[in-house]
Amino acid sequence: MHRFKILFVCMGNICRSPLAEGIFKHMTDNAARAGEFEIDSAGTGGWHQGNPPDPRSVAVAAAHGVDISTQRARRIAVGDFDRFDLILALDRDILRNLRKIVPAGETDKLQLFSRYARGIDEDIPDPYYGGREDFDRVYTMLLTGCTSLLDTAGKLRTS
């Protein structure tokens, strides 16, 4: 069986995309569907490569029973466009940046997370310069989207 491969992308891969990866992995584990998916995250910038997620992301995830503490930031690579079935940008700026580097023939894999998962044209805001309440808000937005995504991605999965 083909595992449906999803990549979540934000700017530095320490706040939003690690949360999305962790939430979605947690959901697939709880639904006994982890074997159906390969899930990862990346950033468009390499400033934090090799670093763990922001401690505030780790804390918010942990408060909901999701462990993202072992994740490490990485920058998106050209090979990711071939490797993943779906690449979800967490805001429109990230989507624009990804469109600049996507190889020909792979553009259909790029989607705005909220548009694809939630059916609304909304950015997931970067909580980096905010407080805990900003991370809580992002977690809630990602949870809503990932809940919908689990159903949608399951229907699109190829065998």
Rank of each mutant, 00 (worst) to 15 (best):
S41I: 01
S41H: 07
S41F: 05
S41C: 03
A42E: 10
G43H: 06
G43M: 03
G45N: 12
W47M: 13
W47P: 07
H48V: 07
H48Y: 13
H48E: 14
H48A: 08
Q49N: 14
G50L: 08
G50H: 04
N51Y: 11
N51Q: 13
N51S: 14
P52R: 04
P52F: 02
P52C: 08
P52Y: 01
P53N: 06
P53G: 07
D54I: 02
P55F: 12
R56S: 06
R56D: 04
R56V: 00
R56Y: 08
S57I: 01
S57M: 00
V58D: 01
A59P: 00
A59R: 07
A59S: 12
A61V: 07
A62V: 04
A62R: 07
A62E: 12
A63N: 02
A63P: 02
H64M: 00
G65V: 10
G65Q: 10
G65E: 04
D67M: 01
I68H: 03
S69R: 06
S69E: 04
T70W: 06
T70Y: 04
Q71W: 03
R72I: 06
R72N: 09
R72D: 11
A73P: 14
A73R: 15
R74G: 14
R74F: 14
R75Q: 14
R75N: 11
I76A: 07
I76K: 05
I76Y: 10
A77H: 08
A77L: 04
A77M: 11
A77G: 11
V78A: 15
V78K: 13
V78I: 08
G79E: 06
G79F: 02
G79L: 00
G79W: 03
G79V: 00
G79P: 03
D80I: 00
D80C: 09
D80L: 03
D80A: 02
D82A: 13
D82E: 12
D82P: 01
D82W: 03
F84V: 02
F84K: 04
F84Q: 11
F84N: 09
I87A: 10
I87S: 13
L88V: 02
L88A: 09
L88N: 10
A89N: 10
A89V: 01
D91Y: 01
D93L: 10
L95Y: 10
L95S: 06
L95M: 05
N97G: 15
N97H: 09
N97V: 11
L98R: 05
R99G: 01
R99N: 07
R99Y: 04
K100R: 15
K100V: 10
I101Q: 13
I101H: 15
I101C: 14
I101M: 13
P103H: 03
G105D: 10
G105A: 04
T107N: 13
T107I: 05
K109T: 06
K109Q: 07
Q111W: 08
Q111I: 11
Q111H: 15
F113P: 12
F113T: 05
